[in-house]
Amino acid sequence: MTAAISLESISIVLVKTSHPGNVGSVARAMKTMGLSDLRLVEPKTTDICSADEAISLASGATDVLEKARIFNTLPDALADRSVAFALSARLRDLGPRLQSPQEAAQEALKLTESAVGAAFVFGAERTGLSNDELLVCNRQVTIAANPAYSSLNLSQAVQIVAYALRTEWAAGQFDLEEDSLAGTLAKGEKLATVKAVADLQAHWLQAMQAVDFINPDKPKKVVQRLARMLAKTPLEQEEVDMLRGFFSDVIRVVDDRLYPHEFERKKP
């Protein structure tokens, strides 16, 4: 392994967690495997990390709880992460290729070696991640379990992923393939963050609506197809900026907010 790789730089993101005990157990699962960056999105209470049950079940991992950060939205929590691995057993017609925890751990560590932020995202205890939350992420991870009863406790799921990260990190086998995302980044490209790509997707849909390409009330599968397309291709920040500039101009022209030279072209 190389000194550039640090498990502490990989984030664990919990979305809409309701039970303090689960947060404490997640903190313990993280610390035992060398992870420390815990992020919470819309927890049931803002003081969930300081609840007695959370502290008790953290069992000495209170430093992880104390450093945990709370965010209002999932894109905000991923604002400095370029790759987000969604943990979900829910299969999507138009989702990214499914990965095992071991495959995801390998990719996350390769990206970390290339100084790219990675996060693993877990949904609410009762419902898991919603379709909208899954669409924010650009990878999907499924834990192989008994198909007759595949329900895992939140902290158990985090422990499995954290263990996969730990074992892959200890093995230290991170060969970069030329055409892989990590291999591309090794050449110096600056990858757009998950939030930047989510904002691009929203802007793209806004432009589609502006030219009546889609009905916002009945977009069919355009949203899912667009999300899948953006997840397939790692975008550099400059590419995101270029596309958003184009969509801004599309919307501007549709709204008839023309520049002086464009008025001249409209004259009969």
Results as ranks from 00 to 15, higher is better:
28 R>E: 12
247 F>P: 07
262 E>Y: 05
2 T>M: 14
211 V>F: 11
170 A>C: 11
16 K>S: 15
239 E>R: 12
142 T>M: 10
183 G>D: 09
253 V>A: 13
2 T>P: 11
43 P>M: 03
137 C>L: 04
74 L>N: 01
234 P>Y: 02
215 N>T: 10
188 G>V: 02
17 T>H: 07
216 P>S: 04
268 P>A: 14
91 L>A: 15
143 I>N: 02
184 T>G: 12
245 G>A: 05
100 S>R: 15
194 V>W: 02
17 T>I: 08
53 E>H: 07
169 W>P: 05
262 E>T: 07
152 L>S: 07
98 L>F: 12
246 F>K: 05
106 Q>V: 14
267 K>P: 10
30 M>V: 09
134 L>Y: 02
192 A>S: 05
111 L>Q: 03
28 R>W: 06
260 P>D: 12
96 P>K: 03
14 L>A: 04
266 K>G: 08
165 L>V: 02
150 S>E: 12
216 P>L: 06
153 N>S: 15
245 G>Q: 06
74 L>W: 01
164 A>L: 06
130 S>C: 13
156 Q>Y: 14
228 R>F: 01
31 K>R: 15
68 A>Y: 00
79 A>R: 11
210 A>K: 01
129 L>N: 03
115 A>F: 15
125 E>V: 06
144 A>G: 10
67 K>V: 00
251 I>P: 10
178 E>N: 09
166 R>F: 13
111 L>G: 03
137 C>F: 10
75 P>D: 11
54 A>I: 09
